[in-house]
Amino acid sequence: MPQPLKDARHLVRMAGLFLVAGVGFLVLRSALIPAGFGELGHYRSGALDDNARVEPRFAGRGACAECHDLAPEELAGGAHAAIGCEACHGPLAGHAADPDTEVPPALDTRSLCATCHAAEPAKPGWFPQVVAAEHAGDDACDECHVPHQPGV
């Protein structure tokens, strides 16, 4: 009986090894890839639902306006008019839902204002920016400035 592969058995073994590795990889792959991957794009489609289920941490300006007088006369035309309340006061969805138990933290204006107004060469020249120590010593920003209506 002719044995065409008699002298190439080692090669068949090698090929077999590759085949086993390849099949093993495919099995591993099917076990490791999360369900829904690739359905909508190069991601797990269930991630959308997961994200949708996350409780929002920000309430939004509308929620603030329900209770607080946002003093439109203060904000209107002010340089900060377009900035959302929670940009400075922090995420306050909890406070909006239950104002009595969840109280917003007091703000440290020196570090808070510096977030935007610390001097930095990469910022455009027209943007108000200061080196706090030179500008105000140890004083807090809101000793002179009114954050809701900036400008001295």
Partner: peptide, 14 residues
């Protein structure tokens, strides 16, 4: 060697 012991001339040629 994957358990193979075949180093005959034909195998080596292959």
């Amino acid at each position: 060697a994957l358990g193979s012991d075949d180093i005959g001339p034909r195998a080596l040629e292959i």
